[in-house]
Simulated assay, not measured.
Amino acid sequence: MRLPILLLTLALPLLSQGQTADDIVKRYLDKIDGSKKWKDVKSMITKGEYDYGGIVFPFTTYAKAPSQYKFVVPFNGKYYAQGYDGNSGWKIDAFKNETTPTLLNGSQARAMANEADVELEIPFINYKAKGHQIKLEGRDTLDGKQFYIITLLKSGGEKETYYFHSTTYSLYLKKSIAKNIELEKALLDT
């Protein structure tokens, strides 16, 4: 009886190496109840960090469908904020002692509108129908835990990297490049 258990124990690591990007995404979607609950989501708050020239800042985003968005970066008692109400964008940069909103025009307004493209449904739900592609990049260890690394290439060309826990399939980290010109393509970790 010990031999079959020993063989199964030895085979489990090999079986887990056979995971595909589709397998991992399916397990993640099963864990979060797939698209069922996501259809009811109308607003979302996201927290993370972005790397601005080697300096890491915290940020919080507030999104409400279909196109309302606010981005806030607090630091040392000051903040940078910008928002989009579906029609126009604004910003306040308290780091530059601004106290009233400045309306965004031209490329800044377009960047804010792109950032406000509120996608409350996670991109993995029906990703193939959306024209997205996924790829398993491998595994990595973060904070002493093992993760699968999945790259999502969106139909518009944006690339995002996701870290899924190797046994629970929970999403741990998402890395992406900011669309917002103000952030100068800073790396966002959410």
Rank of each mutant, 00 (worst) to 15 (best):
K26E: 13
T20W: 11
T46Q: 12
M44V: 13
K42Q: 07
I24C: 08
D22M: 09
Y50F: 12
G48R: 00
G18E: 13
Y52L: 03
G53R: 08
I32S: 03
Q19S: 10
V41S: 07
G53P: 01
D51S: 04
L29I: 07
G18A: 15
V41I: 12
S43V: 05
M44S: 15
G53Q: 09
E49Y: 11
Y28C: 12
I45F: 12
D23V: 14
A21L: 03
D40T: 02
K39D: 04
D51R: 01
Y50V: 02
S35N: 10
A21D: 04
D33R: 08
K42S: 07
V41G: 04
K26S: 10
V41A: 05
G18H: 09
G34Q: 11
K42P: 01
M44L: 13
Y52V: 00
Q19C: 15
R27C: 10
W38S: 03
M44G: 08
T46H: 09
D33H: 08
A21H: 06
D51C: 02
A21N: 02
K42F: 03
V25Q: 10
K31Q: 12
K39N: 02
S43Q: 14
K47E: 02
K47R: 15
S43G: 09
T20R: 11
D33F: 02
V25M: 10
A21V: 04
K31N: 11
G34L: 05
I45V: 13
Y52H: 04
T20C: 14
K39R: 04
I32A: 02
S43M: 08
V41C: 02
K36W: 00
G53C: 07
R27P: 10
G53I: 07
K39Y: 01
W38E: 02
K36H: 04
M44P: 06
G18M: 11
K37V: 09
Q19H: 14
G53D: 07
